[in-house]
């Protein structure tokens, strides 16, 4: 059976169930790379120029680990998902860049998603990808429809059952869910609800973010993420804060952050990669919004290739202390 490799990086967390359904409907077996390890990152960063951002280095590492394990590798080029929104240059050229830096790779299959060019172009792109495995446009269309359904139910599962992409993918692929984390600190500290927002490839890659969500849970915090919101909630926050979205994934950052700053949580933690252009703008919007509101704490953590997690841990601890002390003061004032 023909196999296609999907790197467990970048857009994997947003679309894996959709891609998997599409290829399986066309009779192709899907293989994924293992979760990121030190090795993945080390291999990836030797191939790219030094100022490439951390998530792309990780992506190249995942492609390298798939080289002998499949017949094709699937890398989409997502240009725009809504009219007049734009994506980071690194996503636009991802298939070409990967071909250039991983010459030993099996053939890279790509699909260009650019809704600015209209529906007809989109359908042609989908058929262009599907025909590698089945020339019949009807079969490709069926696969695409099933994939879209899988995507909608994946999003629904996350927002309705409040699951992270990792939990939802485990549910869909039939892997038993991990045990909930036992808080390792004394339960005397009041619990806090923290929203962690940013791109999925930073939030759910536990190697890259030093298991940030797991650590927050160990500290006794309840963690909410962008995927737990509905499309509507995120879009409403984008509209309120910036009017019209400019970046393709603005809903995950400005949308989710803007929503959580007004609802439900004690604090919002933004996660961005060092040197990320779009994020440096979007996090600034959130920081200003938090400053204007003065109600919900906000902190931005920048991730780089540091091997030590100390910096992240110190910030997390101080952020939670700040929230706990604020809460305690509020309780004291009420009594």
């Amino acid at each position: 059976m023909t196999t296609i490799g999907i790197p467990r990086a970048l857009l994997y967390y947003q679309y894996y169930p959709m891609w998997k359904t599409f290829f399986e409907h066309l009779g192709v077996e899907v293989v994924t790379s293992e979760p990121t390890s030190r090795n993945t990152l080390a291999k990836g960063s030797t191939r790219v120029v030094a100022d490439t951002c951390l998530p792309v280095k990780v992506f190249v590492g995942h492609v390298l680990s798939l080289v002998d394990k499949c017949d094709y590798i699937f890398i989409p080029a997502i240009r725009s998902l809504k009219s007049r929104t734009y994506n980071c240059a690194k996503f636009l050229g991802l298939p070409d860049m990967t071909r250039a830096v991983v010459p030993e790779s099996p053939p890279i299959l790509e699909i260009e998603i650019d809704v600015n060019r209209g529906k007809r172009y989109l359908y042609q792109s989908i058929y262009g990808l599907g025909r590698h495995f089945n020339w019949n446009p009807l079969r490709v269309r069926e696969a695409a429809t099933a994939a879209m359904e899988a995507f909608i139910s994946y999003r629904g599962l996350m927002s309705e059952s409040r699951l992270t992409p990792l939990q939802a993918i485990d549910d869909i692929t039939g892997i038993p869910r991990r045990e909930p984390v036992e808080p390792s600190i004394a339960p005397t500290t009041p619990s806090a609800t923290i929203a962690v927002i940013g791109h999925a490839y930073l939030l759910y890659d536990e190697h890259v973010n030093y298991e940030l969500i797991h650590r927050l849970e160990q500290y006794g915090a309840r963690v909410l993420t962008p995927e737990m919101l509905t499309e509507h909630e995120r879009e409403a926050a984008v509209a309120r804060l910036v009017g019209r979205a400019y970046w393709t994934y603005e809903e995950d950052v400005v949308g989710a952050g803007g929503h959580y700053l007004q609802n439900e949580v004690d604090g919002v933690i933004g996660i961005m990669a060092f040197g990320c252009g779009p994020d440096s703008l979007m996090m600034e919007i959130l920081r200003r919004e938090a400053g204007n509101q003065q109600t919900t704490a906000f902190m931005c953590i920048t991730l780089e290739e540091h091997t030590s997690e100390t910096g992240v841990i110190t910030r997390l601890e101080a952020f939670l202390d700040m929230i706990h002390r604020r809460k305690r003061r509020r309780v004291a004032l009420c009594v």
Binding site: M299, G311, A318, M322, R325
Partner: peptide, 8 residues
């Protein structure tokens, strides 16, 4: 008397 923001 309450920390409202910090940076490192």
């Amino acid at each position: 008397g309450i920390v409202t923001d910090f940076a490192m």
